[in-house]
Design a protein around this nucleic acid. Structure first.
Length: 391
DNA sequence: GGACGAGCAGAATCGAGAGG
DNA sequence: CCTCTCGATTCTGCTCGTCC
């Protein structure tokens, strides 16, 4: 886009470039005061609005006697004219992307370190850094995040100052008037994260603009969005996400996480295996009467027990590539610090099909392995087959 | 009895205004 | 820019009920 520039401004710009060259400061590609696309678009809309109104006035005015002595036509014209509507320019638009990429492990780690509020600021600053230069000025942050008219307004300036203090050294480094944003891998490393698990997900910017509860809820929900919908207990979720069970249920509602009841169908019922199963599963075991004959003959009696729920998050997965890259960066950072690797003693027990569950069972028969039965639309619960562990 | 949902009350935290 | 205050919002522990 080429625009004419006043000679004085052009001279001043040339002088600035010369001074920068003398000081050895690198100069970016400079576009001389061309109005931004958004501004010229707004101007164009306002002009169209004015043109339309002029046409309306001209159409109504035709046929009116233009006598300088008789001014009654003025009142008549005023009654026939449409009342002019005030042109209201649109609110400043959000940067082009309306979603941001969030790694569930990072989100839950922020929750665990009471950094959800500061984390929200971090992701919004990343969003504001449209050129990926790695920093945002404090002035920009203040204008975009605290101004009552700003589309990204989430708090007052005083609260922003507190949050900038909270995230200092972890989420960003403040250098006079700039906030240098820390990379995702470095944040994870600083917060003691071993590796990123689950798929990155796309979170709508809108989700970060509500109350802190909504933000926390979406951070929590990203954990479900980024993993398979395998059963997981509230207790395990508490361990993994640091969100108490009561709060998890609340977040389920806020972030619209879908939950699914799961039931495991075991062997045919007999007094002997009932005791055995009680011993293994505890008192959650109950009598399942198969009236429809889904497991074999109709009205067969089986032992069954309730498994933890499975959950489906509201966000779209983003793919594996960025996670692999970040895990490589994390591994590089970890090389500098000697530490053990706490591998799970149990490992995966829920599988998508019987074949993989059987293979897993053949490798390790010390734990039950489960795979889902084909879904029954009439039932609210998902039923699971299982292979029983051998002691 | 385990897992879950729901309601309630008190605690904790947040956010804004006032004043220095 | 900091501290204090206070109302609003959010979180959490407790209890009870339901389902299997």
């Amino acid at each position: 886009m080429t625009e004419s520039v006043s000679p004085a401004l052009a001279a001043a710009n040339a002088r600035l470039l010369m001074l920068r060259a003398e000081l050895g400061v690198q100069t970016r590609e400079y576009s001389p005061i061309a109005p931004s696309l958004a501004v010229s678009e707004e101007l164009h809309q306002a002009q169209e609005h004015l043109t339309t109104y002029r046409q309306q006035v001209a159409a109504v005015g035709q046929g009116c006697p233009l006598s300088p002595t008789d001014t009654s036509w003025v009142q008549e014209l005023a009654q026939r004219l449409p009342s002019p509507t005030i042109y209201e320019p649109p609110l400043p638009a959000l940067p082009a992307a309306e979603t941001l990429i969030l790694h569930p492990t990072l989100a839950t780690t922020l929750l665990g370190h009471e950094l959800a509020a500061a984390g929200r600021i971090y992701f919004l600053l990343r969003h504001l850094d449209t050129t990926n230069q790695g920093w945002v000025t404090v002035e920009t942050a203040r204008a975009q995040l605290t101004d009552p008219n700003a589309p990204l307004r989430v708090c007052g300036w005083r609260r922003l100052r507190q949050l900038l203090k909270d995230g200092e050294g972890v989420l960003w480094q403040r250098d006079n008037d700039r906030l240098w944003l820390t990379g995702a891998a470095k944040i994870a490393h600083k917060l003691g994260c071993q590796r990123l698990t689950g798929q990155a997900v796309e979170i709508p910017i809108k989700a970060l603009l509500g109350g802190i509860q909504q933000v926390r809820a979406h951070f929590y929900a990203s954990f479900h969005s980024g993993r398979e919908a395998a059963p997981i207990s509230r207790q395990t979720l508490h361990t993994v996400t640091s969100v108490p069970e009561r709060t998890q249920r609340l977040y389920d509602d806020v972030a619209q996480i879908k939950s699914q009841t799961n039931l495991a169908i075991g062997e045919k019922h007999s007094p002997f295996n009932q005791e055995e199963r009680y011993w293994q599963q505890g008192s959650g075991v109950f009598h399942f009467l198969d009236t429809n004959g889904q497991q074999g003959a109709a009205n067969g009696e089986y032992l069954a027990w309730q498994l933890p729920n499975s959950y489906q998050g509201p966000h779209q997965p983003h793919g594996q590539r960025s996670r692999k890259r970040l895990n490589q960066q994390l591994a590089d950072l970890r090389k500098k610090v000697a530490e053990g690797n706490d591998k799970s003693k149990i490992g995966r027990v829920f599988w998508s099909d019987g074949a993989t569950a059987t293979r897993a069972f053949s490798r390790n028969a010390t734990h039950d392995q489960y795979w889902p039965q084909s879904a029954d639309a009439s039932s609210s619960a998902q039923l699971w087959f299982n292979l029983t562990r051998r002691e």
